[in-house]
């Protein structure tokens, strides 16, 4: 497991360095615009999505064919990608938080910070929970197509069942008090997703 995570970190190292420039640019923008939540969202997503980059590199080099000749269980191969993504997210947060506090110190909009933070982390966890099984099942090219198709489903469903959905702002206000629970929900979803991915991976042939 450690070997696998190490391999992924080494593989995406270069990619991360390249994206560091984008981050610096965004940082400057966020400071000028005094938009701390935008910065947080971008940092968390860029860093978290690197797990998908690692999967693409694996696919390109047919790494799984080789990894499955090594004394590593299939469950560990899948699980390492989940641990990697959560690790990267934590790194992203650790990187982003001091900057955010710095921006917030000058802008004084701390009230909404906790809400935004929770929602961003939850959204990142949920995206991973959906993305990883799709990429493991379909690979990066087909995975992208399935993903685009999936993006339309929420809109489609909302359109279909519009009349049954209660007043949106009211619902959000009601749900706001539970927002601190959402990252745990996201984490739970990620755990379930890892079980699904492992089941998918175990049926795969290389």
């Amino acid at each position: 497991m450690v070997g696998l995570i190490l391999k992924d970190l080494m593989t995406i190292q270069r990619q991360m360095k390249a994206q560091a420039f984008v981050l610096v640019f965004l940082l400057v923008m966020a400071i000028f615009m005094q938009q701390s939540s935008m910065l947080l969202a971008i940092i968390v997503f860029i860093v978290t999505i690197q797990a998908i980059t690692a999967l693409s590199y694996d696919e390109q080099s047919k790494w799984d064919k080789y990894a499955n000749t090594l004394p590593i269980s299939k469950a560990d191969i899948v699980f390492s990608k989940y641990i990697l993504s959560v690790m990267l997210m934590i790194i992203g947060l650790v990187m982003a938080l001091p900057i955010l506090f710095f921006i917030n110190f000058f802008t004084n909009n701390e009230t909404e910070f906790f809400l935004t933070f929770n929602l961003i982390v939850t959204l990142a966890l949920c995206s991973l929970a959906v993305l990883l099984p799709i990429y493991i099942k379909f690979g990066s090219i087909k995975g992208r197509i399935v993903l685009i198709a999936l993006c339309f489903i929420p809109g489609f469903l909302t359109g279909m069942f519009k009349e049954y959905i209660p007043d949106m702002p009211q619902t959000f206000l009601y749900l706001k008090q539970y927002v601190y629970l959402t990252p745990f929900g996201g984490l739970l979803l990620l755990c379930l997703s890892s079980l699904v991915s492992t089941a998918i991976y175990k049926r795969k042939e290389f």
């Binding site: 070997g3 593989t11 270069r14 590199y57 080099s61 064919k65 080789y66 090594l70």
Partner: peptide, 27 residues
């Protein structure tokens, strides 16, 4: 067992020294 395929199936951005570090954690 040691397995050799007709090509090396590891991510191409890695180098031999990095592979040593990775494999030392595997075996």
């Amino acid at each position: 067992i040691g397995v050799v395929f007709d090509d090396l199936h590891v991510p191409e951005t890695l180098n031999a020294t990095q592979l040593d570090k990775i494999m030392s954690k595997v075996f």
